[in-house]
Protein backbone atom coordinates (compact mmCIF):
# COMPACT_ATOMS: atom_id res chain seq x y z
CA UNK A 1 0.00 0.00 0.00
CA UNK A 2 1.40 3.35 -1.06
CA UNK A 3 1.71 6.15 1.50
CA UNK A 4 -0.51 8.61 -0.38
CA UNK A 5 -3.85 7.91 -2.04
CA UNK A 6 -5.21 10.09 -4.83
CA UNK A 7 -8.73 9.50 -6.14
CA UNK A 8 -9.68 10.56 -9.64
CA UNK A 9 -12.85 10.06 -11.70
CA UNK A 10 -13.01 6.66 -13.36
CA UNK A 11 -14.89 7.59 -16.52
CA UNK A 12 -16.35 10.16 -18.82
CA UNK A 13 -15.34 13.69 -19.63
CA UNK A 14 -14.07 14.36 -16.11
CA UNK A 15 -11.58 11.50 -16.47
CA UNK A 16 -10.33 12.78 -19.85
CA UNK A 17 -9.89 16.28 -18.43
CA UNK A 18 -8.05 14.90 -15.40
CA UNK A 19 -5.69 12.95 -17.64
CA UNK A 20 -5.02 16.16 -19.61
CA UNK A 21 -4.38 18.02 -16.38
CA UNK A 22 -1.73 15.54 -15.30
CA UNK A 23 -0.18 15.29 -18.77
CA UNK A 24 0.17 19.08 -18.86
CA UNK A 25 2.11 18.79 -15.60
CA UNK A 26 4.32 16.16 -17.22
CA UNK A 27 2.76 13.25 -15.35
CA UNK A 28 1.45 10.19 -17.11
CA UNK A 29 -0.60 7.55 -15.41
CA UNK A 30 -0.20 3.83 -15.75
CA UNK A 31 -2.83 1.28 -14.84
CA UNK A 32 -1.68 -1.11 -12.17
CA UNK A 33 -4.75 -3.33 -11.91
CA UNK A 34 -6.22 -5.42 -14.69
CA UNK A 35 -9.73 -4.05 -14.28
CA UNK A 36 -8.59 -0.46 -14.36
CA UNK A 37 -9.46 0.70 -10.87
CA UNK A 38 -5.89 1.36 -9.76
CA UNK A 39 -3.11 3.36 -11.36
CA UNK A 40 0.25 4.94 -10.51
CA UNK A 41 2.64 7.62 -11.71
CA UNK A 42 5.72 5.68 -12.91
CA UNK A 43 8.06 8.53 -12.00
CA UNK A 44 6.57 9.36 -8.56
CA UNK A 45 6.72 6.54 -6.08
CA UNK A 46 4.46 6.01 -3.09
CA UNK A 47 1.29 7.40 -4.71
CA UNK A 48 -1.64 5.09 -5.31
CA UNK A 49 -4.24 6.39 -7.75
CA UNK A 50 -7.78 5.09 -7.24
CA UNK A 51 -10.33 5.47 -10.00
CA UNK A 52 -13.73 6.07 -8.44
CA UNK A 53 -17.02 7.74 -9.32
CA UNK A 54 -17.10 11.49 -8.68
CA UNK A 55 -19.54 11.12 -5.79
CA UNK A 56 -17.48 8.33 -4.19
CA UNK A 57 -14.47 10.64 -4.38
CA UNK A 58 -16.41 13.36 -2.55
CA UNK A 59 -17.50 11.02 0.25
CA UNK A 60 -14.00 9.48 0.50
CA UNK A 61 -12.46 12.94 0.90
CA UNK A 62 -14.98 13.94 3.56
CA UNK A 63 -14.57 10.69 5.49
CA UNK A 64 -10.76 10.79 5.18
CA UNK A 65 -10.45 7.53 3.24
CA UNK A 66 -8.21 9.19 0.62
CA UNK A 67 -5.67 11.99 0.93
CA UNK A 68 -6.24 13.80 -2.33
CA UNK A 69 -8.97 13.73 -4.92
CA UNK A 70 -10.38 15.45 -7.96
CA UNK A 71 -14.12 15.94 -7.95
CA UNK A 72 -16.83 18.56 -8.30
CA UNK A 73 -17.21 21.27 -5.67
CA UNK A 74 -20.99 20.67 -5.84
CA UNK A 75 -20.54 17.05 -4.73
CA UNK A 76 -18.17 18.02 -1.93
CA UNK A 77 -20.49 20.70 -0.60
CA UNK A 78 -23.44 18.33 -0.79
CA UNK A 79 -21.46 15.67 1.09
CA UNK A 80 -20.45 18.08 3.87
CA UNK A 81 -22.24 21.41 4.34
CA UNK A 82 -19.26 22.81 6.25
CA UNK A 83 -15.98 21.98 4.50
CA UNK A 84 -13.74 23.95 6.86
CA UNK A 85 -11.58 21.55 8.82
CA UNK A 86 -12.62 18.57 6.71
CA UNK A 87 -11.68 19.23 3.10
CA UNK A 88 -9.37 21.84 1.61
CA UNK A 89 -10.13 22.98 -1.94
CA UNK A 90 -6.57 23.32 -3.23
CA UNK A 91 -7.24 24.34 -6.81
CA UNK A 92 -10.23 24.92 -9.05
CA UNK A 93 -9.30 23.19 -12.30
CA UNK A 94 -11.46 25.15 -14.75
CA UNK A 95 -13.31 22.12 -16.12
CA UNK A 96 -16.33 20.11 -15.07
CA UNK A 97 -18.49 23.20 -14.77
CA UNK A 98 -21.89 22.59 -13.22
CA UNK A 99 -24.16 25.32 -12.01
CA UNK A 100 -26.53 24.16 -9.27
CA UNK A 101 -29.74 26.14 -9.85
CA UNK A 102 -33.35 26.47 -8.77
CA UNK A 103 -35.66 25.99 -11.77
CA UNK A 104 -39.43 26.23 -12.22
CA UNK A 105 -41.82 25.78 -15.11
CA UNK A 106 -41.74 28.49 -17.80
CA UNK A 107 -45.49 28.44 -17.43
CA UNK A 108 -45.06 30.09 -14.04
CA UNK A 109 -44.75 33.54 -15.59
CA UNK A 110 -45.33 35.13 -12.19
CA UNK A 111 -42.26 33.48 -10.65
CA UNK A 112 -38.93 35.10 -11.48
CA UNK A 113 -37.13 35.30 -8.15
CA UNK A 114 -36.73 33.36 -4.90
CA UNK A 115 -39.07 35.92 -3.28
CA UNK A 116 -41.76 35.00 -5.82
CA UNK A 117 -41.14 31.33 -5.10
CA UNK A 118 -41.53 32.02 -1.39
CA UNK A 119 -44.98 33.58 -2.01
CA UNK A 120 -46.01 30.68 -4.20
CA UNK A 121 -44.78 28.07 -1.68
CA UNK A 122 -46.86 29.69 1.05
CA UNK A 123 -49.94 30.06 -1.17
CA UNK A 124 -49.56 26.47 -2.35
CA UNK A 125 -49.41 25.13 1.20
CA UNK A 126 -52.52 27.12 2.10
CA UNK A 127 -54.65 26.14 -0.92
CA UNK A 128 -53.47 22.57 -1.52
CA UNK A 129 -52.89 21.69 2.13
CA UNK A 130 -49.54 20.15 1.39
CA UNK A 131 -46.08 21.48 0.78
CA UNK A 132 -44.71 22.23 -2.63
CA UNK A 133 -42.19 19.55 -3.58
CA UNK A 134 -38.64 20.24 -4.68
CA UNK A 135 -36.97 17.36 -6.54
CA UNK A 136 -33.20 17.25 -6.22
CA UNK A 137 -30.05 15.22 -5.75
CA UNK A 138 -28.74 18.13 -3.68
CA UNK A 139 -30.90 17.96 -0.55
CA UNK A 140 -28.33 19.63 1.68
CA UNK A 141 -27.44 22.48 -0.67
CA UNK A 142 -31.14 23.04 -1.32
CA UNK A 143 -32.00 23.21 2.38
CA UNK A 144 -29.19 25.63 3.03
CA UNK A 145 -30.08 27.89 0.10
CA UNK A 146 -33.81 27.90 0.79
CA UNK A 147 -33.09 28.73 4.43
CA UNK A 148 -30.89 31.66 3.34
CA UNK A 149 -33.81 32.84 1.22
CA UNK A 150 -36.17 32.36 4.17
CA UNK A 151 -38.34 29.78 2.44
CA UNK A 152 -39.78 27.11 4.71
CA UNK A 153 -43.03 25.93 3.12
CA UNK A 154 -41.65 23.15 0.92
CA UNK A 155 -40.44 19.60 1.11
CA UNK A 156 -37.59 17.87 -0.64
CA UNK A 157 -38.20 14.84 -2.81
CA UNK A 158 -34.96 12.93 -3.34
CA UNK A 159 -34.31 12.40 -7.02
CA UNK A 160 -32.22 9.55 -8.36
CA UNK A 161 -31.91 10.85 -11.91
CA UNK A 162 -33.61 12.85 -14.69
CA UNK A 163 -34.58 15.47 -12.14
CA UNK A 164 -35.54 17.88 -14.93
CA UNK A 165 -38.48 15.62 -15.81
CA UNK A 166 -40.07 15.79 -12.35
CA UNK A 167 -42.39 18.78 -12.92
CA UNK A 168 -43.78 17.31 -16.14
CA UNK A 169 -44.09 13.87 -14.55
CA UNK A 170 -45.95 15.36 -11.61
CA UNK A 171 -43.54 14.04 -8.98
CA UNK A 172 -42.41 17.54 -7.92
CA UNK A 173 -43.27 21.16 -8.69
CA UNK A 174 -39.80 22.72 -8.50
CA UNK A 175 -36.33 21.31 -9.10
CA UNK A 176 -32.80 22.01 -7.96
CA UNK A 177 -30.39 20.54 -10.48
CA UNK A 178 -27.12 21.10 -12.30
CA UNK A 179 -26.91 22.74 -15.68
CA UNK A 180 -24.16 24.01 -17.94
CA UNK A 181 -25.92 25.63 -20.90
CA UNK A 182 -29.50 25.50 -19.62
CA UNK A 183 -30.55 23.63 -22.77
CA UNK A 184 -31.84 20.51 -20.97
CA UNK A 185 -33.88 22.65 -18.61
CA UNK A 186 -35.33 24.64 -21.49
CA UNK A 187 -36.12 21.43 -23.36
CA UNK A 188 -38.25 20.43 -20.38
CA UNK A 189 -40.08 23.76 -20.24
CA UNK A 190 -38.13 24.98 -17.22
CA UNK A 191 -36.40 28.27 -16.44
CA UNK A 192 -33.77 29.27 -13.88
CA UNK A 193 -34.83 31.83 -11.28
CA UNK A 194 -33.01 35.18 -11.58
CA UNK A 195 -31.41 34.79 -8.14
CA UNK A 196 -31.60 31.00 -8.15
CA UNK A 197 -27.91 30.17 -8.64
CA UNK A 198 -26.89 28.07 -5.63
CA UNK A 199 -23.34 27.21 -6.66
CA UNK A 200 -21.13 27.73 -9.72
CA UNK A 201 -19.12 24.56 -9.38
CA UNK A 202 -15.93 23.32 -11.08
CA UNK A 203 -13.81 20.23 -10.62
CA UNK A 204 -11.33 20.82 -7.81
CA UNK A 205 -8.13 19.26 -6.65
CA UNK A 206 -9.02 18.76 -3.00
CA UNK A 207 -7.28 17.40 0.06
CA UNK A 208 -8.93 15.57 2.91
CA UNK A 209 -7.91 17.15 6.22
CA UNK A 210 -9.19 14.18 8.20
CA UNK A 211 -7.14 11.54 6.33
CA UNK A 212 -4.22 9.82 8.02
CA UNK A 213 -1.41 12.23 7.09
CA UNK A 214 1.66 10.18 8.00
CA UNK A 215 5.10 11.66 7.38
CA UNK A 216 5.39 9.38 4.34
CA UNK A 217 2.06 10.63 2.98
CA UNK A 218 3.15 14.24 3.48
CA UNK A 219 6.45 13.59 1.75
CA UNK A 220 4.79 11.90 -1.25
CA UNK A 221 2.22 14.68 -1.43
CA UNK A 222 4.93 17.33 -1.42
CA UNK A 223 6.59 15.74 -4.45
CA UNK A 224 3.28 15.41 -6.32
CA UNK A 225 2.16 18.98 -5.57
CA UNK A 226 5.53 20.43 -6.57
CA UNK A 227 5.08 18.79 -9.99
CA UNK A 228 1.57 20.22 -10.32
CA UNK A 229 2.60 23.68 -9.10
CA UNK A 230 6.35 24.37 -9.09
CA UNK A 231 5.74 27.77 -7.42
CA UNK A 232 4.88 25.93 -4.19
CA UNK A 233 1.47 27.60 -3.84
CA UNK A 234 -0.50 24.37 -3.57
CA UNK A 235 1.88 22.93 -1.00
CA UNK A 236 1.70 26.15 1.01
CA UNK A 237 -2.09 26.09 1.05
CA UNK A 238 -2.24 22.45 2.11
CA UNK A 239 0.35 22.94 4.87
CA UNK A 240 -1.59 25.91 6.21
CA UNK A 241 -4.89 24.00 6.21
CA UNK A 242 -3.35 20.91 7.80
CA UNK A 243 -1.73 22.96 10.56
Amino acid sequence: MAALTLAIPSKGRLKEKCDEFFVTAGLSMQQTSARGYRAAFPDIGDVEIMLLSASEIASSLVSGDVHLGITGEDLLREEAPELTGRVSLLKSLGFGNARVVVAVSEYWIDVETMADLDDVCAAYAATHRRRLRVATKYARLTRQFFAQNRISDYRIVPSAGATEGAPAAGTAEVIVDITTTGATLKGNGLKILADGLILDSYANLAASLTADWTDEAKAACKILLSRLDPSGGLQGKLSADLA
Binding site: E106, W108, P167, E173
Partner: peptide, 21 residues
Protein backbone atom coordinates in the same frame (compact mmCIF):
# COMPACT_ATOMS: atom_id res chain seq x y z
CA UNK B 1 -49.14 32.01 -20.95
CA UNK B 2 -50.11 30.54 -24.31
CA UNK B 3 -46.58 31.06 -25.58
CA UNK B 4 -45.51 28.62 -22.81
CA UNK B 5 -48.24 26.07 -23.50
CA UNK B 6 -45.67 23.25 -23.71
CA UNK B 7 -44.24 23.90 -20.25
CA UNK B 8 -45.66 21.88 -17.32
CA UNK B 9 -48.33 23.41 -15.06
CA UNK B 10 -46.33 21.87 -12.21
CA UNK B 11 -49.08 21.54 -9.65
CA UNK B 12 -50.69 24.94 -10.05
CA UNK B 13 -53.73 25.90 -12.10
CA UNK B 14 -53.78 28.37 -14.97
CA UNK B 15 -56.18 30.50 -12.91
CA UNK B 16 -53.82 30.55 -9.91
CA UNK B 17 -51.02 31.82 -12.11
CA UNK B 18 -53.18 34.44 -13.82
CA UNK B 19 -54.53 35.69 -10.48
CA UNK B 20 -51.09 36.04 -8.93
CA UNK B 21 -49.65 37.75 -12.01
Amino acid sequence: LDTHADAPLAGRTREEIIART
